[in-house]
Design a binder for these strands. Structure first.
Lengths: 206, 206
DNA sequence: CGGTGTGAAGCCTTTCACAGCA
DNA sequence: TGCTGTGAAAGGCTTCACACCG
């Protein structure tokens, strides 16, 4: 479920406030969804609640972490160190533990060797070696649109199984490879679409 | 429909290649969706296709631009000029014309007055005036999570009707205000979720 | 013929409503 | 008594399949 991360964050906040248990209603409020939806979603993971009481915050947090794979370490590579790539490299808000940027890659020789934070930019020709050596399974793609498909192909060939695409291009990847996209222009266009038609709310994406 | 922007981009590419007409099948391929879906979506806008031929690229482009409000000018403000805000301010890829960043706002007095590209960062206390004077309807929110809700409230109070939220927080806005979110941590967590369960594809968000 | 436009079927998600348990 | 877990209903979106038209 794409809503688990929302619950996860809501539970993190709740745990910080030393609250021991939480009802589906409260959790729904924090996550911005419906209470029935919360119960359905959580029951799908197993019966972790106590009737008449609610859910144990710490326990549920642990179960969701496990389900989301946040108990593991996920080395991440960022390909394309332009404005956006650099910002993502510096972004300390990858929230939960688990995701660690371990490589920055760019095709531009002029960028190779430059440091961004603690990492040096590496050439894209070393991609195979980098992915293999650092056991990278997730890549963030932040290249210009025309290069995106080729880079995606190289990432897949190198063994990457999940790609988060920021380039404004439609990519195709083989079965077995997960692909998600974040497209700023599209988001703005959707807002503009609804703005023209007032009073029609624009729900969130994922 | 949230797919119009995809068609729009596919049609832009097609128009550049001097292609006059396009079939639903080809357009579907370019947009990464199903052909029946394309026809349903487009028929919702009106009957713009010619049976046995396809759709006139230029005409369809124009109709979709109009539908998406891309024939208008949309002044945009970015609030929160950290790493991400700065990257977004420099981002020249807002794709289609229409969206123009006309103001950068931050709460940190140390940042106020600094230039990013052609714009100077302005204090958040001037928000009302800035929004009114420059007729801003769309805001990009890139503050830290704890400040996000308060900033959103101020934006709404200032008259902004659409917010694109990059802060990792669940926001609530009044009816009549559109809200969309982009959350990097959530995207990565979803990828990690599917990575644990190989062979289950992760579809794209919007 | 070829490809659009569209009723109808199918599928998936959301919501309701309430039985059942601590 | 209060809140979870869940069958069943409702709703929305996607896909199929084909009539119809250039």
């Amino acid at each position: 479920m794409a809503r688990l991360p929302l619950y996860y964050r809501a539970l993190l906040d709740t745990a910080e406030r030393q609250v021991a248990t939480i009802s589906s209603e409260r959790l729904a409020e924090l996550a911005g969804v419906n209470a029935a939806k919360v119960r359905k979603d959580l029951s799908y993971l197993g019966s972790y609640g106590t009737r008449g009481v609610g859910y144990d915050v710490e326990y549920l947090l642990h179960e969701i972490s496990r389900e989301l794979g946040l108990t593991r370490d996920w080395p991440v590579v960022i390909v394309g160190i332009g404005n956006l790539g650099r910002a993502l490299a510096n972004y300390r808000g990858f929230g939960a533990r688990g995701f660690r940027v371990v490589a920055l890659v760019d095709a531009d020789p002029a960028l190779v060797g430059k440091r961004v934070g603690e990492l040096a930019i590496e050439p894209i020709d070393d991609l195979d070696r980098i992915v293999a050596e650092r056991q990278i399974a997730i890549a963030i793609l932040a290249t210009p649109a025309p290069a995106a498909q080729e880079v995606a192909d190289r990432l897949v060939a190198a063994g990457v199984r999940s790609i988060l695409n920021f380039a404004p291009a439609v990519l195709t990847v083989p079965d077995g490879v997960s692909l998600r996209k974040v497209d700023l222009a599209i988001e703005l266009q959707i807002l503009s679409f609804y703005q023209l038609r007032r009073n029609v709310p624009a729900a969130s994406s994922p």
